[in-house]
Amino acid sequence: MDVLVWIQNWFEQNCNGDWEHLYGIKIETVDNPGWSVEINLSDTYLEKKRFNSIEVNTEEDDWFFCIVRDGVFTGAGGVKNLSEILNIFKQWASDNEETR
């Protein structure tokens, strides 16, 4: 499944009348240039799941990192790394789905 379709479905599954008003997902551009992703995990099945931080620096414009800190999945990367960041979240979320 395409990662964008998957993240839309994940968002929809977590919308319960409250979560989407208090938390949610932010995808923004940054000026270096690149991407910033924040996915608030509060009140989701991922809230207390362990995430091993990832950092990849291939080239000056091909880099990304992903961490979970204070209940928020945070990813940032180069201009062509958005799909990698979202796929890392997708893989982690899918791996932990059975342990809800």
Rank of each mutant, 00 (worst) to 15 (best):
residue 40 N to E: 12
residue 6 W to M: 05
residue 59 E to Y: 12
residue 45 Y to M: 06
residue 43 D to R: 11
residue 76 A to N: 12
residue 11 F to N: 06
residue 63 W to N: 09
residue 17 G to E: 02
residue 90 K to S: 04
residue 35 W to D: 03
residue 63 W to F: 15
residue 94 S to Q: 11
residue 6 W to N: 03
residue 55 E to W: 04
residue 79 V to G: 02
residue 29 T to L: 11
residue 91 Q to G: 00
residue 19 W to A: 03
residue 26 K to F: 01
residue 92 W to A: 03
residue 19 W to K: 02
residue 23 Y to R: 08
residue 83 S to P: 02
residue 64 F to D: 03
residue 56 V to R: 13
residue 29 T to M: 11
residue 44 T to A: 03
residue 89 F to S: 05
residue 28 E to N: 12
residue 89 F to Q: 01
residue 81 N to F: 05
residue 62 D to A: 11
residue 17 G to W: 01
residue 36 S to A: 10
residue 72 V to C: 10
residue 20 E to Y: 06
residue 52 N to L: 09
residue 12 E to H: 10
residue 83 S to L: 13
residue 55 E to H: 13
residue 7 I to N: 00
residue 56 V to C: 10
residue 11 F to C: 01
residue 58 T to N: 15
residue 37 V to G: 07
residue 41 L to M: 10
residue 38 E to P: 00
residue 67 I to C: 07
residue 75 G to Y: 04
residue 68 V to F: 06
residue 6 W to Y: 15
residue 69 R to W: 09
residue 3 V to L: 05
residue 40 N to F: 14
residue 7 I to W: 08
residue 43 D to W: 04
residue 14 N to A: 01
residue 90 K to M: 12
residue 77 G to I: 07
residue 17 G to P: 04
residue 28 E to T: 06
residue 82 L to W: 06
residue 97 E to V: 12
residue 73 F to N: 04
residue 52 N to K: 14
residue 32 N to I: 10
residue 55 E to M: 09
residue 20 E to C: 07
residue 76 A to P: 00
residue 100 R to A: 09
residue 36 S to T: 01
residue 25 I to H: 04
residue 22 L to M: 12
residue 12 E to D: 15
residue 86 L to F: 06
residue 79 V to N: 12
residue 20 E to L: 07
residue 54 I to F: 06
residue 45 Y to C: 05
residue 87 N to T: 07
residue 22 L to H: 11
residue 63 W to Q: 03
residue 19 W to F: 09
residue 44 T to Q: 02
residue 37 V to K: 05
residue 48 K to F: 08
residue 9 N to R: 10
residue 92 W to I: 02
residue 61 D to F: 12
residue 87 N to E: 14
residue 1 M to T: 13
residue 30 V to R: 13
residue 83 S to H: 11
residue 72 V to F: 03
residue 69 R to P: 00
residue 96 N to C: 11
residue 5 V to F: 01
residue 96 N to P: 07
residue 13 Q to S: 13
residue 65 F to M: 13
residue 14 N to W: 05
residue 64 F to G: 04
residue 41 L to G: 08
residue 49 K to A: 06
residue 46 L to Y: 03
residue 73 F to H: 07
residue 96 N to W: 03
residue 45 Y to L: 08
residue 62 D to G: 00
residue 13 Q to E: 15
residue 76 A to I: 08
residue 21 H to R: 10
residue 8 Q to G: 09
residue 57 N to R: 14
residue 44 T to C: 05
